[in-house]
Amino acid sequence: MSAFLIRRLLRFVVVCLGVSLVTFSILHASGDPVALIMPEAAEADRAKLREALGLSDPLSTQFVRFVGNAARGDFGRSFFHREPAFRLVVERMPTTLALTCLAVALALAVAVPVGIYSAVFRNTVGDHAATVVVFLGQSMPVFWIGIMLMLLFAVQWRLLPVSGWGTWSSMVLPAVTLGAFTTPLFMRIIRSSMLEVINLDYVRTARAKGLSEWLVICRHALRNAALPIVTVIGLQFGLLLGGAVLTESVFAVPGVGRLIVGAIRQLDFPIVQAGVFLLAMIIVSVNLFVDVLYVYLNPTVRLR
């Protein structure tokens, strides 16, 4: 176990360094970021800014400095807000996490019962209907789902606000949008995990003992299907955050995604780097957590 943990942690550190390298290179991908930031300035002013941002040092020096600063949460000041970029990003984080958690809760509330139903009543009309929903859901852009919900509930029926965040009613549409984006994915995972365990020997034994179908499914099958479900959902966390970025943009939710998208448009590199770095760190940590959890909870995993 400890050998596994050490190896896994080592990989975590290496991946973090890789994430830093990619985030670092965003600024340099433009060739000369200063020319992008102040296209009309005289060369002397540009040189001054380049010096101030440390852009005239060798790239390796800059990268080492970047990693050191990133570890301390220092990404420089936003070019436009004149505040530490990292703080601006962290301030928006609770909103994004709240949106994501609400959406996951909604998605699970729908996907767990429907997914189980589809697996238990495989190839029935209900299962086919669920499959159709999965196909449709996975073929729609999340931002379009959001606008369609907005058209119906905010414009047509005037039940909910068009955009914003803060009151409960304003959270409904964004959460439902991101939830609708996530549900098909969860449904598929839950259905296939359930199908894998449902015909195993121990489930048959449980049935043979005369347990009710309900007990067999909930207590025996679901418990063993839960682990792969949690794992896959953990691994899809990046997709979920990507969906959150788009949802925030549709409904003007003041979260990290909207902040970063705005910063990308203004070429406000410190915010872009801080935001992308922080989201990547969340994803890397979730993956680490899920991996370790998987090994801890699954006695059949043999550690090499």
Partner: peptide
């Protein structure tokens, strides 16, 4: 691993 650590769209 590194490239799967970012939300692709961002």
């Amino acid at each position: 691993d590194v490239s799967l650590s970012f939300p692709q769209i961002l």
